[in-house]
Amino acid sequence: MTAEQPVLETHDLAKRYGRRTWALTGIDLAIPQGGITALVGPNAAGKSTLIKTWVGFERPTRGGVTVAGIDPWKDRSGVLGLVGYVPQAPALYDGLSVNDHLDLAVHLRPDFDRPYARQRLEQLGIPGDQGAKSLSGGQQAQVALALALGTRARILLLDEPLASLDPLARREFLHVLTDAVRSDGATALLSSHIVTDVEQACDGLIVLGVGRILLHETVADALATHWMAADGAASSEGTAIGSFGGPGGERLTLLRSESSSAGPNLRQASLEEVVLGYLASGRALPGEAAA
């Protein structure tokens, strides 16, 4: 596989729960090999569902997904051989110690790199003989990450591992993740609804809202091509994406412009504002999700 070939793909992916609730509606995505891509969206946007379809935990209602060209529903074991997965709110076995978890991983997956996972945890000062029950939320997330990294998988799928962590633990988690991805040349997809944390760590950005993709590009491009306009400012300098309330109560509008210089009434948008602007645009069209 070349570096340009996408490792994670979806084609017209739709997922429905029950008869009426659509979690995803017609998603087309192609995530290239290498780097960390942030999958950002509000609660119930479909982030977990999207990741679970790649792991083979959810069957698409329509369309399909592939991991390195393999359909997870047809060849789940083939996909799981390529993927390291950190579930949402990682749950560990209460009755097992940290080392027991690593031993269990070796039993479940004979090629699991126990020394590598152990080393990652030692760097964080997490003792191997400590019971999982007595670990902090941040430590539990680190153990879950170490279990995923120990698979030495080329693709890491992380389903909101930061959600319950304090800022310091989030930063530490992202540091370990970026370090591992950069050193191993892996591809990681990290879902989160905390934009500020992923800004520094991620190369790519996917904004998912109400079951559809609102934006998918590199973080650098997203920052370079989006601008903020205050209420009443001319929007002729770019395409208006969405409006939302600013911190002082003013109305802010996100504009997209390929121009490299901003007009007098514009300022460069932060990544959080880019995401908010697209989510606002997504919310304006709620009917599409159920279409």
Binding site: L80, A89, A91, L108, R109, L147, A148, T151
Partner: peptide
């Protein structure tokens, strides 16, 4: 207790 996700992803065959 939500440990199945981790275990089933680690084990290639359920």
């Amino acid at each position: 207790q939500r440990t199945a996700g981790m275990a089933w992803a680690l084990s290639r065959s359920r």
